[in-house]
Design a protein around this nucleic acid. Structure first.
Lengths: 156, 156
DNA sequence: CAGCAATCAATTGCGAACAATTAAATGTGA
DNA sequence: TCACATTTAATTGTTCGCAATTGATTGCTG
């Protein structure tokens, strides 16, 4: 069976930067899972909590801009956080279109339990801080260029 | 409202590198989308096709190992590719537990149309090939260490 | 060879992720 | 002011991604 097909090097899985990013994201997710299970959070929920721990009372849109997510993702996610009593969702009285997200006391308290997470991630990555820093900077630069390319193509 | 909470910058790197990977993966996905729409594929489906174009007639498990995905993800995805007449799914007569995935003529023909995709991605990334290569290698090394850490922790 | 463990795919249930649409509130220009 | 565009969330429908379970096949061990 197992037919071979002529290989265009650019179409080889191992040569694709995107697959490296994609598979690394999943690997991170799997490392985070047991850590976040103890907090009762998924990874995207954890990201939202990180944003709120930096300063809450934000409209959904602001959270979305920070995380590159839209309301179709955030609305149900935030409702789950509300059910878990970690956040409150209230209409902005000055602009009834906005829903402001703020932390409950439980949501604030969870920050303490979350403090051990980044260290555990660093340990699992088994990588020096400068090296990780370099990779992080390359990736954010790449992401910003990709998003810029999207802006351009959707502009007209 | 908008309370500020103090944060340790060094410790946050674990969070930051992961978010960089996570958000870059989504940015890539959004860039791929219009390109893959023309092929009638989603990004994960495209990955499966990349594997099969390198050599088909593989059991589901082998595809999963290449892509770090399990049958819960692959089974429905492969059924959609079958409905789209890009692949065939047949039980292995020598081991009836396995389902072998092979390309249909249409599936093979699609490789030709896919050849323009990597170049478009390269353009959107607005990045030199050696630079991308370096980032890719760092990421795959990081991914492999993360997966190794998972192996260790699940071993006992 | 009989019983039992291991392997493999499929299934179920839940939580993202996003496109496309809807609905309400706000802002703007004639 | 009134019509109309813009902004903001929510909703709907499709596809991933994974944990946990199921069912069938195979392999192994006594």
């Amino acid at each position: 069976m197992a037919r071979k097909h002529p290989a265009d090097p650019q179409l080889l899985l191992g040569n694709q930067i995107c697959f490296a990013v994609y598979s690394t994201a999943h690997a991170f997710n799997r490392v985070y899972k047991p850590l976040l299970d103890r907090l009762g959070l998924t990874y995207p929920q954890y990201l939202v909590m990180l944003v709120l721990w930096e300063g809450d009372g934000l409209p959904v849109k602001d959270i979305g801009e920070r995380l590159f997510l839209d309301s179709g993702t955030l609305t149900p996610l935030l409702k789950r956080l509300e059910v878990a009593q970690l956040v409150k969702r209230t209409r902005n009285t000055e602009d009834e279109r906005q829903v402001l997200i703020s932390l409950t006391p439980q949501g604030q308290a969870l920050q303490e339990k979350a403090k051990s997470v980044p260290h555990a991630i660093l340990a699992a990555s088994a990588c020096s801080v400068p090296e990780l820093l370099a990779t992080k900077n390359q990736l954010t630069a790449l992401r910003d260029r990709l998003n810029a390319a999207l802006e351009d193509s959707s502009a007209q």
